[in-house]
């Protein structure tokens, strides 16, 4: 099992699997080339690199993170036209009383992810996003299944 940390990305080829633990407001983006059974996973923290001063780590942002992941997958033989996406995360962990946009970053991360994927012509075929709980995700390129684990709920596959 290949592990991807916060603000990090990596790829994985069947029969191996790839995971990221404890997604909160962050979004986990799985890109999958069904022909090669090659998957990529990015764990992004923030929506937009152009809004931030310190943006050297591309994997931290939805826009640059997805670009970097697509490039890495193409370098390993994937075709962008074949890629599909599954996304999870973007929760609001604390019920903040104010409508401070900083604190609603989960929602903004999901939006930015969707906009970016659409602009690249990558279809989202499944998602488990929003709400107020953390998620651990595991993707199996062999079957294309994304396993989602949460605290106090049953596991599900999307």
């Amino acid at each position: 099992m290949i592990r991807v940390g916060m603000a990090d990305l990596n790829i994985c080829m069947s029969p191996d699997a790839i995971t990221t633990l404890g997604l909160g407001s962050c979004v986990g983006i799985v890109l999958y080339d069904t022909t090669l059974k090659l998957a990529g996973l990015a764990h992004i923290m923030l929506p937009d690199s152009t809004q931030i001063r310190s943006n050297s780590n591309v994997a931290k942002f939805a826009d640059t993170g997805i670009d970097a992941l697509v490039q890495l997958m193409e370098k390993n033989g994937a075709k962008k036209s074949r890629l599909i996406a599954k996304i999870a995360g973007g929760a609001q962990m604390f019920k903040f009383s104010s409508e401070n946009s900083m604190l609603c970053v989960g929602k903004r991360n999901i939006e930015a992810t969707k906009i970016k994927l659409e602009s690249l012509g990558i279809r989202i075929i499944a998602e488990d996003t929003g709400d107020s709980y953390g998620r651990t995700i595991e993707f199996y390129p062999e079957t294309g299944e994304l396993l989602i684990k949460t605290v106090g709920k049953t596991e599900k596959i999307i």
Partner: peptide, 26 residues
């Protein structure tokens, strides 16, 4: 502020301060 509470995975909870400071640095 008033206290905010969450019961969940440590990683998910710690992502909140991580994101707040991710805007400022690495």
């Amino acid at each position: 502020s008033i206290p905010y509470m969450a019961i969940d995975m440590a990683g998910a909870i710690l992502s909140v301060p991580a994101i707040a400071f991710g805007e400022l640095g690495d």
